[in-house]
């Protein structure tokens, strides 16, 4: 055992230098030089100010905006420095209550009928930037009403922001809520 200790510790030190410092720092320099936008978190700026990341969902509760999915992050929804899902089991009474209250909230907001599955369920990250096209469409009437726009205008907008499956089969159709809302704001002006 003793004769193995020297290589054990020396190699641990060497690997730490190579893999723990040289490798991530090297990748960082390279990434920052070649792909600075992505490397910094794909941030979206409006008028010079950061309004968010196009990859990270944010809590928009104003009825003038499209709403994202419920988020289970603590202490507030869409806390991008404490990602988390609700981690409630399928038979959890808490889950059923939470979903029920979210459904009621959405019904109150004028969304009728069975809701799309993503509308009242929390995502795994709590930061899901997307909603399903169905959930986006379900909100059109409300946003149109609030903003004094026609539903056709908004329907057209959602259609433009909606992303399809890559190559027709990879991933799911989705709407990036932040991009949709930014486009919405852009229409107004």
């Amino acid at each position: 055992m003793i004769q193995h200790l020297r290589p054990a510790f020396v190699m641990t030190a060497l690997f730490t230098l190579l893999l723990g410092l040289a490798y991530p720092l090297g990748i960082t320099s390279l990434a920052q030089a070649v792909m600075p936008n992505a490397a910094q978190g794909s941030l979206i700026r409006r008028d010079g100010a950061v309004v968010g990341s196009q990859l990270i969902g944010q809590a928009t509760t104003s009825p003038r905006y499209f709403w994202p999915r419920p988020s289970a992050t603590a202490p507030d929804p869409y806390n991008a420095s404490a990602s988390s899902g609700a981690n409630l089991g399928p038979t959890s009474a808490k889950l059923a209550e939470r979903v029920k209250s979210d459904i009621e909230r959405l019904h109150t907001a004028g969304i009728a009928g069975p809701l799309p599955a993503d509308a009242a369920t929390a995502s795994g990250s709590g930061l899901d930037p997307h909603i399903s096209p169905a959930f986006a469409r379900a909100q059109i009437a409300r946003v149109a009403r609030e903003r004094g726009m026609t539903e056709a205008q908004l329907s057209d907008l959602v259609g433009r922001v909606e992303e399809g499956r890559l190559l027709g089969f990879i991933g799911e159709p989705r709407v990036n809520v932040l991009r949709l809302n930014l486009a919405l704001d852009a229409m107004k002006s």
Binding site: A86, S123, S125, H130
Partner: peptide, 10 residues
């Protein structure tokens, strides 16, 4: 849409 609790839309 299936069981979307804990899942991402994408």
């Amino acid at each position: 849409g299936g069981n979307m609790e804990g899942k991402e839309v994408r």
